[in-house]
């Protein structure tokens, strides 16, 4: 027994430098949503590529990720093994929720993926095209209910922009916030709402199965393999990209930050990750270091403008 203990201590000591960190990834949303999928894909690839021995995903849902962000910033301070998934939604949510914890309170590592918004209606809906939806919106904005992610998130912003582009008062939209992708999807499938808006990946399986009709995507150009017009083609000058990033805990030393960045870079360049991007339909938008920091600042400033414009932030 003694030998066993000794051996395991030795083995542990020797293995320590060789093993990369065991990461805990916080997905600040309910299971099933985009951040959850990103976190779980990270988990799979980090383990499968041998970048990390053991990765755990923890869901901390609510309020556009600010609940998870606040908990992450306070509880993981100085922990180099904790990561949080976040993204554009968080930028808006921090503003609308007047969150005391912002992205300045964590250590952004890299932007990983981009995903365009998809607008869907139930298969049985009378609405066949984006033009039909815009017509209904113009007739009575309140009668068109939209199911999407939390208040002030990308989905909400995109609906506001669509309304504005269609010449409808953006403050009049009837937006129903759900805390995660799963519950919103159930509401759309059950025809509880007029339309649904979220990242394409969350609707893909249902669109392919024919239970949802995809009427538009929010990209600048048509997406390969996706049979739907862009909003621009439908006469609405709106392009929204929902990017997702990974951030580390606050209070890390430069070395710790470099180590995490190196792990994330290894991940982003791996064949396994490229495969995930392909199967999930996410665009690779890997951007790290100072370039990402600068882009982040620009996005925060731009988002504040948009939110004020459509009356979500006063």
């Amino acid at each position: 027994m003694k030998h066993f203990f000794l051996a395991s201590i030795l083995a542990g000591a020797m293995a320590l430098p060789a093993y990369a960190a065991d990461y805990t990834i916080i997905a600040p949303a309910n299971p099933g949503g985009g951040w959850d999928q990103t976190a779980r894909s990270l988990q799979t690839v980090l383990q499968q590529e041998g970048i990390s021995g053991n990765v755990q995903v923890q869901n901390v849902p609510g309020a556009g990720g600010t609940i998870g962000l606040a908990q992450f910033a306070s509880q993981q301070k100085g922990n180099p093994n904790a990561l949080i998934v976040g993204g554009y939604v968080m930028v808006g949510a921090i503003l609308t929720n007047k969150s005391p914890v912002t992205l300045k309170d964590v250590t952004p590592i890299a932007r990983l993926t981009g995903e365009f918004e998809a607008i869907v209606v139930p298969a049985a809906s009378e609405i066949k095209t984006m033009a039909d939806l815009v017509a209904a919106l113009k007739k009575d904005p309140g009668a068109v209910s939209w199911a999407g992610g939390s208040a002030g998130g990308t989905d909400h912003i995109a609906v506001g922009l669509i309304a504005k582009a269609a010449g409808v008062d953006p403050t009049k939209i009837n937006y129903i916030a759900y805390s995660g992708g799963g519950e919103a999807l159930a509401a759309i499938l059950g025809s509880q709402v007029t339309a649904g808006i979220s990242g394409y990946g969350e609707f893909e399986a249902q669109v392919k199965a024919g239970t949802l009709r995809l009427i538009a995507v929010s990209s600048g150009e048509r997406l390969a393999g996706i049979d739907a017009p862009t909003l621009k083609e439908s006469g609405l000058d709106v392009v929204v990209e929902n990017w997702r990033m990974v951030a580390a805990a606050p209070g890390l030393t430069d070395e710790q930050k470099a180590a995490v960045s190196a792990d994330v870079e290894k991940l982003a360049k791996s064949a396994g990750w490229q495969e995930v991007l392909k199967t999930k339909g996410w665009q690779d938008s890997y951007l790290s270091g100072d370039a990402f920091a600068a882009q982040l600042d620009k996005d925060v400033a731009a988002t504040e403008g948009v939110l004020k414009d459509i009356g979500l932030v006063k």
């Binding site: 609510g62 600010t66 609940i67 606040a70 609308t96 929720n97 005391p100 939390s150 208040a151 916030a177």
Partner: peptide
């Protein structure tokens, strides 16, 4: 935090209560 409007209720500025 209220799910539908994102406003904090009965949290008294304590982040853990959010």
């Amino acid at each position: 935090i209220d799910q539908l409007t994102g406003q904090a209720r009965l949290s008294f500025g304590v982040p853990e209560l959010l």
